[in-house]
Design a protein around this nucleic acid. Structure first.
Length: 533
RNA sequence: GGGUCCGUAGCUCAGUCAGGCUAGAGCACCGGACUUUUAAUCCGGGGGUCGCGGGUUCAAUUCCCGUCGGACCCGCCA
């Protein structure tokens, strides 16, 4: 039962081992083992797109860990047509439905095309996570003719391709239509064309721009009949065949995929093997990310949870933790989970540095996981771990004018910082996350408070005491006295004050806080309540 | 119609590269300690037929088959 631990003991190491074993059996060259991910370019990249990258990259890292040369290919699908205008973008874009996203102008005006803009959003988040990749743009790949041999083979064997599609998913379309979308030379659309004949001698595909129904909606064609030169990037393979082509042309040995394209992968595996005579890459299928309501998180549904949103509240490593900690199974996801992942990352770091003891097997795995989260560049020394909710609490309570000082002082008194020790970069980062968090989700609410006569008197008394006192302890005492003198339970009185001052039933020790907040501000707040009541 | 995932403590979930002794964590809850307490803190406690039924095994929450419930994906395009 005590099997050797593979690599760093994670799922990815095991996957890498399987890839190697398979490649060995196939007797293929292993100088460089490429993994691949698809970069969507037709909508805002959501968090799942990053998952694809993270997992494929983890396999690349695992392969390297086992002593092999490996790289991740990021293949940008910028020749895909626009099928739907994403929520949040101008309806004007509808006129570009069916156009390759790389030939649609950038609606934000900052990049050369719509597709570039979208794919760069994802690449930016990959960079933030430290994921390295070799970038391929479909547009360029086709223009340079990198897939030319495969396209020819597929078109020459279109009949067989059609049969495979029919056998696997029962779709008959490709028994008559070629698995190739020419770009219409007249109207510029790509999804509207129907390719019906391939002329091998001239590398031309004949087509008619007929239109296509997508999700119950017709994208109209212009009726143009023409021919397209497959050597010039004037079209692309449909997905039933394109994976296969690029696997072979780019020599891909591993690709993870979401279950939504499982059928497509199945078909492409067969095309790859049976038509292109190339053993398809090893695969791993993962589930989609669902939001808490059980809905698939997708670009068009409007519930866009982008990596950028995550980075507002949590670190890139915590996002990688989410992606990597578990491979199988549906993950439900919500912004409110971010603090938990931030804390879990701290836990992993504690295990990594031996501050927390767990079983050997467990420790190996968790340390490995941390290394993957840091893309094999784990921190050299432990950082200071302040629980997310504490930090959120502190920044919420902290007076704006002296936030850092207040937080520093509190952290010192709670023992997270030594006396005289100041905030370091990582703590500053945590403060930023917590600030965004409280700003966006825990707006201090204006609570309406009705006061009894005793409470009014107590507050009035407190106000006059506050005017005179400037010592934290004396103010603290004044509060207790104001309560007692008016027959109130101190605990209840404190609760009321917290409600008035910060909209929460509890908070930091009031004496010092009143001073930190500015005594006059506190007095003003109390007077407001008195006058309203 | 085809397929996948989930179902473990009141809640959220670990336990999924490797099946093994009394199944864990966080939160919540209860009790105690300390305190003019205040994300309090410290100590202790209850609580689980690991959805259900079979099978493989010396041993299954873990593997296999079936079944119920929940969700998702595909079935047009990609």
């Amino acid at each position: 039962m005590s099997e050797e631990t593979v690599g760093r003991g994670t799922w990815y190491d095991m996957m890498a081992k399987k890839v190697i074993e398979r490649e060995r059996q196939l007797g293929r060259n292993m100088d460089k083992i490429r993994t691949e991910m698809g970069l969507g370019a037709s909508g805002f990249p959501h968090i799942g797109s990053l998952g694809d990258a993270a997992r494929s990259y983890a396999v690349t890292l695992a392969l390297k860990g086992l002593g092999f040369n490996s790289e991740l290919v990021a293949y940008c699908d910028d020749k895909d047509g626009l099928r739907k205008v994403p929520v949040g973008l101008s309806k004007d874009l509808e006129k570009y439905l069916g156009f390759p996203v790389s030939s649609i102008p950038d609606p934000f005006g900052c990049h050369e095309s719509y597709g570039k803009h979208m794919s760069l959003l994802l690449l930016e988040s990959l960079d933030k996570c430290g994921i390295e990749y070799r970038y391929f743009s479909a547009k360029e790949v086709y223009e340079k003719g990198l897939l030319l041999n495969e396209i020819r083979t597929i078109l020459l064997n279109a009949k067989k391709v059609g049969e495979i599609v029919k056998e696997e998913v029962g779709q008959e379309r490709y028994t008559e239509v070629l698995p190739f979308f020419p770009v219409c030379s007249n109207c510029g659309r790509i999804y509207t064309t129907k390719a019906f004949k391939f002329e091998p001698k001239t590398d031309k595909v004949l087509y008619k721009c007929e239109g296509l129904e997508i999700r119950g909606r017709l994208i109209e064609g212009c009726g143009h009949e023409g021919e397209t030169d497959i050597t010039k990037g004037e079209g692309k393979l449909t997905w039933k065949g394109e994976f296969a082509a690029r696997w072979k042309a780019l020599d891909i040995r591993f690709e993870a995929y979401g279950k939504d394209i499982a059928d497509s992968v199945k078909i492409n595996d067969r095309i790859c093997r049976e038509v292109l005579c190339f053993e398809s890459p090893s695969h791993a299928k993962y589930e989609m990310f669902l939001d808490k309501g059980g809905k698939k998180i997708s670009k068009s549904a409007g519930n866009v949870f982008t990596p950028q949103v995550w980075f507002r509240y949590g670190s890139p490593q915590s996002l990688l933790l989410l992606m990597l900690k578990r491979f199988v199974g549906t993950r439900t996801l919500d912004v409110s989970d971010i603090p938990a992942y931030m804390n879990e990352l701290d836990y992993l770091e504690d295990v990594y540095f031996g501050k927390k003891q767990v079983g050997d097997k467990e420790a190996t795995k968790l340390r490995g996981l941390l290394e993957y989260c840091y893309v094999m560049k784990p921190p050299a020394k432990p950082s200071i771990h302040v629980p997310y909710n504490l930090m959120a609490f502190l920044v919420k309570m902290a007076p704006k004018e002296c936030l850092n000082d207040y937080v520093t002082e509190k952290l010192q008194s709670y023992g997270y910082l030594q006396k005289n020790q100041n905030l370091d970069a990582s703590l500053m980062k945590r403060i930023d996350y917590a600030l965004n968090w409280t700003r966006d989700f825990e707006e201090i609410k204006e609570t309406v408070i009705t006061l009894t006569d005793e409470e009014k008197k107590a507050i009035t008394e407190l106000i006059s005491k506050l005017e005179a006192e400037n010592e934290p302890d004396k103010i603290q005492n004044a509060i207790f006295n104001a309560a007692k003198n008016n027959g109130l339970q101190p605990s209840g009185f404190f609760k009321m004050l917290y409600n008035i001052l910060m909209g929460a039933p509890q908070g930091p020790r009031l004496g010092p806080y009143v001073l930190a907040m500015g005594k006059q501000n506190v007095i003003a707040a109390l007077q407001r309540v008195l006058s309203k009541s």
